[in-house]
Nucleic acid binder design. Structure first.
Length: 220
DNA sequence: CTCCGGCCAT
DNA sequence: ATGGCCGGAG
């Protein structure tokens, strides 16, 4: 890979080879997955690891294969199915949002409209817009925050660093394959650019990374 | 900005 | 046993 490859190109190339295949994902380059499944997985993933989410996701989607089905479910059934995941207000918001979507007749496809649904904040709205609808949204979760802080050596501590981090994330977010890009950033943060002992030797962004150049990437 | 939740890694 | 975590909401 040439030294002048762009960050999105490097990252997407890496994602094409290393994307994890997960039940709620569409493989790189293939048509976007069902927004309902993306949303459900994102809400579950906000609070639990991939391994813990898998069985819950499978049970939810087999029992309620569509938003409409979830919207029609009695609250008690959803709460019972959620038991063990914690953060029960998220399950309540899940049902509320499903009913709002059913009422609308379709899943909102813009970041702003998604943001208006209960339980969808800046992060989840951007993630669904990008991953399920292919829109260019700047998706920043805690993993991405760390990756971007390192890439640009933003050493101001959180929460002050949020605005510069977001601005920097904006500059590297591509118009094409925005969903894959977002998922790639999150995969990178989860598997390579980890909080402690980042694996820079395996990182597709090692060359342009300012933190790595500084010699102490874990400081960010 | 602060608070909150509840599982899970330490 | 304890607190870290990480989003959303007020």
């Amino acid at each position: 890979m040439s030294a002048t490859s762009t960050i999105p190109d490097r990252l997407l190339g890496w994602y094409d080879r290393h994307a994890r295949d997960l039940p709620w994902r569409a493989p790189p380059g293939t048509p976007a997955p069902d927004p309902y499944r993306v949303w459900l997985s994102e809400v579950m993933l906000q609070q639990t690891t991939v391994a813990a989410v898998k069985p819950y996701f499978a049970r939810f989607t087999s029992r309620w294969p569509t938003v409409e089905a979830l919207a029609a479910a009695p609250d008690e059934d959803v709460m019972a199915a959620w038991a063990g995941l914690g953060y029960y207000s998220r399950a309540r918001n899940l049902v509320k949002a499903a009913r709002a979507v059913a009422e609308l007749g379709r899943f909102p496809d813009s970041e702003a409209a998604l943001r208006a649904l209960p339980g969808l904040g800046a992060y989840t709205a951007a993630a669904v817009a990008a991953i399920a609808f292919g829109q260019r949204a700047v998706v920043v979760d805690a993993n991405v925050e760390r990756v971007v802080a390192r890439l640009f050596a933003i050493d101001e501590p959180l929460p002050g660093a949020r605005r510069p981090i977001r601005a920097a994330a904006d500059t590297i977010t591509p118009a094409e394959r925005a969903g894959d890009f977002a998922q790639a950033m999150m995969d990178l943060g989860a598997t390579i650019c980890t909080p402690r002992d980042p694996r820079c030797l395996l990182c597709p962004l090692a060359e342009p990374c300012a933190a790595r150049a500084s010699g102490d990437p874990a400081r960010y």
